[in-house]
Design a protein around this nucleic acid. Sequence first.
RNA 1: GGAGCAGCCCGGGCGAACGCCGGUCACCGCAAGACGGGGUGGCGGGAGGAAAGUCCGAGCUCCAGAGGGCAGGGUGCUGGUUAACGACCAGUCGACGUGAGUCGCAGGACAGUGCAACAGAAAGCAAACCGCCGAAGUCAGAGCGUUUUCUCUCUGACUGGUAAGGGUGAAAGGGUGCGGUAAGAGCGCACCGCGACCGGUGUGAAUCGGUUGGCAUGGCAAACCCCACCUGGAGCAAGAGCCAAUAGGGGAGCGUUGUUUCUUUGCCGAAACAACACGGGCGGCCCGCCCGAUGCUCUCGGGUUGCUCGCUGAUGAGGCCCCAAGGCAACUUGGGCCCUAGAUGAAUGUUCGCUGCUGUUUCUGUCGAGGCAACUCGGCGGGAGCUGACAGAACUCGGCUUACAGGGCUGCUCCGGCG
RNA 2: GGCCCCGUAGCUCAGCUGGAUAGAGCAGUGGUUUCCUAAACCACAGGUCACAAGUUCGAUUCUUGUCGGGGUCA
Length: 129
Amino acid sequence: MSRTQRFRKESRLRKRRQFLFIQDRGLKVHSDLLLALALDNRTGKTRLGLTVSSKVGGAVVRNRVRRHLREWFRKEQAQWPTGLDVVVIAKVPAATATSVALGAAMVKLGHELKKRRAAVPSKAESQRG
RNA sequence: GGAGCAGCCCGGGCGAACGCCGGUCACCGCAAGACGGGGUGGCGGGAGGAAAGUCCGAGCUCCAGAGGGCAGGGUGCUGGUUAACGACCAGUCGACGUGAGUCGCAGGACAGUGCAACAGAAAGCAAACCGCCGAAGUCAGAGCGUUUUCUCUCUGACUGGUAAGGGUGAAAGGGUGCGGUAAGAGCGCACCGCGACCGGUGUGAAUCGGUUGGCAUGGCAAACCCCACCUGGAGCAAGAGCCAAUAGGGGAGCGUUGUUUCUUUGCCGAAACAACACGGGCGGCCCGCCCGAUGCUCUCGGGUUGCUCGCUGAUGAGGCCCCAAGGCAACUUGGGCCCUAGAUGAAUGUUCGCUGCUGUUUCUGUCGAGGCAACUCGGCGGGAGCUGACAGAACUCGGCUUACAGGGCUGCUCCGGCG
RNA sequence: GGCCCCGUAGCUCAGCUGGAUAGAGCAGUGGUUUCCUAAACCACAGGUCACAAGUUCGAUUCUUGUCGGGGUCA
């Protein structure tokens, strides 16, 4: 049970190259608060990377947004399709959003990703092309 | 009771579950390039007073450093504290406040250069626009005396005297009063201000008293500058290791002349010295010094963008501020106790229970007042809901500055009331 | 995280160092010209010189502090 609610280093994106690669090739999905870019990593596991730039706010605001998003992903990642590398970028209105609103935005992104799962480019194809 | 000043402190508390980061111990176990990496469990740890701004100062690291000079930068009342400082403490002076107190980039304008629009006569050296004066001089006219010259009186013009008053300006060469004078003026006097000298006190900045000058030397140094003191450059993305490696590609430069020596039949060649020039180094510049042919220098490109250490410490300019001593104090010395985050797309979160305080909304009990009543207002109490600032470590310290809901403690000042 | 630079009209910039008129080009508005438009010409409007405090008689300029924007690092 505890296995499904963890969020450790292995399920995060940790290198600048990974972020740039996904932002360059990935499928874009928008919500009013967030922007997601997804890429098939062909491992069957979902990995998440968060980007909250200084445009969103100061360090306190950015930490709060990032922690709310991480917390939602830790508990509710079963609502998302598996096998994707996803970069979630916070938009400026996310600064004043509640954790409930941020969770709803993540759910919406999950629905959208499921609907367009087949259209998500895979890492190998992208590298080839 | 009201208004205020200064200093210090807090920045909700307890518990549970699920997570995250790193530490340590035990077990499992991957890789075999490396000082590489993983899983499970136990134990204990995990943001601030400003962690912020990056404005100063240091530790630490690398680069540079024969020496000298210049430039540049910083500080700027005095004495002290400190590892150091532009910080802090104590004082002096000035400004503000009834006061407790607060604030002050607070040296030098007889070293020099400069600046001041407009207005104004004049803006730094004295000068005189309107005025004021008729003492002195010249000329003209009138009058009296007189033969005339001349003298006297009056009027006007010019030369002249003056800076009290007017006016301009941010600023016009001490201020007020009295005397004085043709009118005036430190021209004289009194008081105040200013300067110089002497003496007392103080380590000193200064201050007090006396004598004296007779006002000269206006303002701006956050204008250049002068004086005194301080000052190499860069920054943990510093820097070191794993690391093998002097990997390796293109281009440019490494000169000329003379003398001597060696070799030689001689040329050639090599070395040394000197002169002139060139390039490079001395991380601002100059002098000066050093270097320049199987290696070195400069320049343009290319590859890598990983991991470990630095890195958080039983040792430190450490913390607590619990004692003692010295000091007005900052602080110092000795003793006691404690060891307190360490990430790197970057950890400190989410949910729940109980509870303290503040503000607010609502329900309700009781008491009092008003009202015929419905009800309204106020005091005391209970329940429920909402609310609670500024802000997130990034090598580490000492300061400063800026932001901040609300609350607490101590000392002091002024005003009012009562005794 | 460290270091450095810049904020002037709607836009791009002068003027700042060395203090006293806030300017240029484009854009805007009105007019002239044309059958109409463009171009050209003339005129006009538009500024808290990022903000605050200080020095000064006087600050876009000098000093200090805030706020915003940008660049760079092996």
